[in-house]
């Protein structure tokens, strides 16, 4: 079980390495799609079916966005002038961050023992024990999302709305030109 999980995450890491190292933008986009879909399978193995479903849906949409932005543009051989100094600096920086990261991950509990078991009054335990009685939802993820922490979901909807609004405002063409013309015509 854990071996299968590790193998799937290893495949994900390989796809991520291909994404970062390839010089073709379309190849990078397609392999990041591979990362996302492999992660959806990993989420299924981690007993998170809701997250897996959402991951698949979101990955499809984000792949459509990325491929639409890539197609027809400068996707052929992009000149990748890998300066030795730059790459070595980047590797050193990533290594330093990685050392800190190893320290952080060493402080985590052993894999397979959830963090909620460390604390007697962890909110997750409360959700697990009284979620069905209090909300009537058998699926506790939706109970947390839409009942216990509905304010978070409202904030999420706000952020999503603002991001979509920003994207539309950035991509809108000729808006200012039209208003200028309207002003000239009216004056």
């Amino acid at each position: 079980m854990i071996e299968v999980l590790a193998l799937l995450i290893l495949l994900t890491v390989i796809a991520a390495i291909i994404t970062v190292l390839t010089s073709n933008l379309l190849h990078a986009v397609i392999s990041v799609g591979a990362v996302g879909f492999l992660l959806a399978i990993v989420y299924l193995f981690l007993s998170a079916p809701d997250v897996a479903i959402v991951q698949i849906g979101v990955e499809v949409v984000s792949l459509v966005i990325l491929i639409r932005a890539t197609l027809g543009r400068e996707v052929q051989k992009l000149k990748t002038v890998h300066a030795v100094v730059g790459v070595s600096f980047a590797v050193a920086f990533v290594a330093v961050i990685g050392l800190f990261g190893i320290q952080v991950f060493n402080a985590f509990p052993q894999f397979g023992i959830p963090v909620m078991q460390r604390f007697a009054d962890a909110p997750s335990l409360v959700y697990l024990q009284s979620g069905l009685a209090e909300t009537g939802a058998p699926n506790l993820v939706t109970a947390v999302l839409l009942d216990f922490r509905a304010w978070d979901t409202l904030g999420e909807a706000t952020v999503l709305f603002c991001a979509a609004l920003g994207a539309v405002a950035i991509l809108r063409r000729n808006a200012r030109i039209n208003t200028d013309k309207n002003k000239e015509e009216s004056s």
Binding site: L66, P114, V115, M116, V144, L160, A163
Partner: peptide, 20 residues
């Protein structure tokens, strides 16, 4: 643990908006 799953669900959708 259902709590990280719910938070990750939120974060995935926000990630889509930020990506767009």
């Amino acid at each position: 643990d259902p709590l990280p799953q719910a938070m990750v669900l939120t974060s995935i959708v926000i990630g889509l908006g930020v990506l767009a």
